[in-house]
Amino acid sequence: MSALDVSSHKAQATIGRRGIILRVAFVILAVGLAVVAWPVVHAMPQFGSHPLPYGDRVNAIGPAERHITNMVSAINFDIRGIDTLGEEFMLLCAVTGGTVLLRGGRGEDRAASPGHVKGRANHRPPDSLRLLCRVLAPLTMLFGLYLAINAMLTPGGGFQGGVVIASALLLIYLAEGYAGWRDALGSEFFDAIEGLGAALYALCGFVSMGLGLPYLAAFLPFGTLKNTFSGGSMLIVNLGVTLAVAGGFATLLIEFMEETRTLKPGDDPDE
């Protein structure tokens, strides 16, 4: 991949010319899009008052046959469970790709001053921010756990809870700074959490097969409606998703934060 030296006048002229060509192409494309979209928009079903056969079926099946009240979880973890497994592995692949792209030979040194940009003052976070984040981080973590645990009852679930848990980790970074943050969190731990979560999901499907059922079919009793631990094997799947999402996003946070660390003489800047 090569690039222009943007400082020269000639390069600036080339960039300007390209900009005009691209904008003209966009206008043509936009007119084309509008022309194509107009009949499609008119052919769309009447907003808000057309039959929803699949939705109605799911809304009937969820409480009656699966004993859970959150229909989105019923779809994600049971009705289209194998799709969610694909989504899970897509997440795993994206996180692995990001980690491979970012991780270099810079090791795990915690003494280096990260977040420091050359020529910019590196202030210690103010005490008010540290206090606020120290208060908010555990609460956010608790909220994430609440979302994940009550996946079968109320809005929430493994994906939402996992992301909220990972954002609590970012609040710890804001409060403690890089060194304290890295001391508190080991990236190996989150790598393991992510892999274990995805594996738990996949293995849950194999347990069904071992019992003579189709892959990912529910094999535990569904429990009683409106009980936190209703849903049977959906709970295991949900736990797997929570671990994988929290671990995946935490890994991404750690890797991106590593990027801001100042390089030491021995480090390879390309990695």
Partner: peptide, 25 residues
């Protein structure tokens, strides 16, 4: 209503949860 039947009687008219799960993905 939203497709959450914790505080609603199951069978209440609810919006389509299938597309909501797709949006989550």
């Amino acid at each position: 209503v939203a497709p959450i039947f914790y505080d609603k009687r199951p069978g209440t008219q609810a919006v389509d949860p299938v597309v909501q799960a797709l949006v989550l993905t």
